[in-house]
Amino acid sequence: MPEINVYGQTVGDALPDWKGASVLPRAVLEGRYCRLVPLDADSHAADLFDAYAQAPDDRDWTWLASERPTSVEAAARWVTGKAADASLVPYAVIDQRSERAVGLVSFMAIDAVNGSVEIGHVTWSPRMKNTVLGTETVWLLLRQAFCLGYRRVEWKCDSLNEASRRAAERLGFVHEGRFRQKMVRKGRNRDSDWLSMIDDEWPQRDAVLQRWLAPENFDEKGQQRKTLAACLVGGRVSDD
């Protein structure tokens, strides 16, 4: 708990045992519905190009830094750039049913000294929409980060990207504020919304997510029986 120091000032919680978080390895994260594998152009570019090509237009790319790849070669260059970036831990999302890459995500803004990391470069394809894959992907990343000693996991999005913010809040991230004129993205101003989940919150969030992800929560068509909100003990049931 906060303390009063010798000068009569209120100071933050003491962390006498804090030694920093562990390195986030580029290692496979295995789930029930998907697995996350280290991103590789040779293995994933063609699948990702095909997955993103299922969309009828580019609306899913409006708030992203990148443009939708127009060829397998363009997808390979895009993937290679992320895979070669030492500041990222980038993953391809592999659908366990098809064994094909259907999306991309990364750990970024990695600060092991202070125990903070961001989930970013979130680029889902139409093959992930209205499926369990997006939720399980984020749960796998959260589990990995908190297991390795991170105290804080961040989610950031364009303030106008309401779908991204709603998705983060549905998963249990807490909105912290808005950074005005944070960047210029595709020639336009971007105000950025910041959200986070911290280690004290993780056990409860983990339990809710695991209840939602359980096989018995889905019917034979893969449709949820209970919403994530309904899986929150004592929570208000609503449509997600």
Score class of each variant (00 low, 15 high):
2 P>L: 07
5 N>P: 01
8 G>P: 00
9 Q>F: 00
10 T>F: 00
13 D>C: 04
16 P>A: 08
16 P>R: 01
17 D>E: 14
19 K>Y: 04
19 K>D: 06
20 G>P: 13
23 V>A: 04
30 E>C: 06
34 C>G: 02
39 L>K: 02
51 A>S: 11
52 Y>M: 06
56 P>D: 14
56 P>A: 14
63 W>M: 13
64 L>M: 13
75 A>R: 02
82 K>R: 13
83 A>P: 01
84 A>N: 11
86 A>W: 05
95 D>V: 03
108 M>Q: 14
109 A>N: 14
110 I>C: 08
114 N>E: 10
115 G>E: 10
117 V>E: 00
118 E>Q: 12
120 G>Y: 03
124 W>S: 04
126 P>S: 11
132 V>E: 00
136 E>L: 04
140 L>H: 07
141 L>M: 15
144 Q>S: 14
145 A>T: 07
152 R>T: 02
158 D>V: 04
163 A>H: 09
170 R>H: 07
175 H>G: 10
176 E>H: 12
180 R>P: 12
188 R>L: 08
198 I>G: 04
200 D>R: 15
201 E>R: 07
213 L>S: 06
213 L>K: 08
214 A>E: 12
220 E>Y: 08
222 G>L: 15
222 G>Q: 15
223 Q>G: 12
223 Q>W: 14
227 T>A: 10
